[in-house]
């Protein structure tokens, strides 16, 4: 218990250091650097994952954590609906769920979460430093909030934006948490280009 609580304290310090860094850099850098870029994390099979390996696919990225009861299941469920709506074009899209709670979200935990949804998705985790680097790259944010009165011990407040990358790995679209399946499907189709694949429901 005490080891665990030192764990989150250390993590909380990390996050505040990063938040402070963000404030400082925002204060002096005028044009925000284009978010995104390549990264390496560990996937839910325990294998190294390089974003560069997804070139040629549209990639949907979001940040979350498994203990969260709402955002992550809702987002995964919505993206599974998106995939179904994309029909044959679904094979051209990859979903990445990056955990901002790497202490608890081991590859095994992420696997249990992801296998439930009919979706071509990978759960990604890594060391705290690795995850923080990717969070910063995408301009996402999270904060570890101790909840000593709860069996959860701590909660992770986090951004819920969906980032959609084109086939070259550039962030082209972002969607808020409230975006509908329709909006996301339309956005992804705009990146996939003219569909030579049939739409769902036709010729299947």
């Amino acid at each position: 218990m005490s080891a665990a609580s030192t764990g989150w304290r250390r993590a909380a310090r990390w996050v505040s250091a990063i938040a402070l860094g963000g404030v400082l850099s925002a204060a002096c850098a005028a044009p925000a650097p284009a978010p995104g870029g390549d990264f390496t994390l560990t996937d839910h099979h325990g294998e190294p994952f390089h974003l560069a390996s997804t070139r040629g696919k549209v990639v949907v990225i979001f940040f979350g954590y498994s203990m969260c009861p709402d955002v992550c299941p809702t987002t995964l469920s919505k993206l599974a609906s998106v995939a179904r709506r994309l029909g044959d074009q679904r094979d051209l899209v990859k979903t990445l769920y990056i955990s901002v709670d790497p202490e608890r979200d081991t590859p095994e935990v992420l696997k249990a979460d992801l296998e439930y949804f009919p979706l071509d998705a990978l759960g990604l985790t890594g060391t705290r430093e690795e995850v923080d680097r990717v969070v910063a790259q995408f301009g996402a944010e999270y904060r570890i909030v101790p909840t000593p009165e709860s069996a959860g011990r701590y909660a992770v407040t986090h951004t819920t934006t969906l980032y959609v990358l084109d086939q070259g790995g550039r962030v082209r679209l972002t969607f808020p948490y409230e975006a509908t399946t329709d909006e996301i499907v339309t956005g992804i189709r705009s990146l996939l280009g003219p569909a030579d694949a049939p739409e769902e429901g036709t010729r299947r």
Binding site: C68, D70, V71, S150, G152, T157, T160, Y177
Partner: peptide, 20 residues
């Protein structure tokens, strides 16, 4: 389950927060 707790999800700026 071991524990049942009362919780709330809330938007905090661009972030979602969960708290007991």
């Amino acid at each position: 389950a071991d524990t049942l707790e009362l919780h709330e999800m809330k938007r905090e700026g661009g972030m979602m927060a969960m708290s007991p």
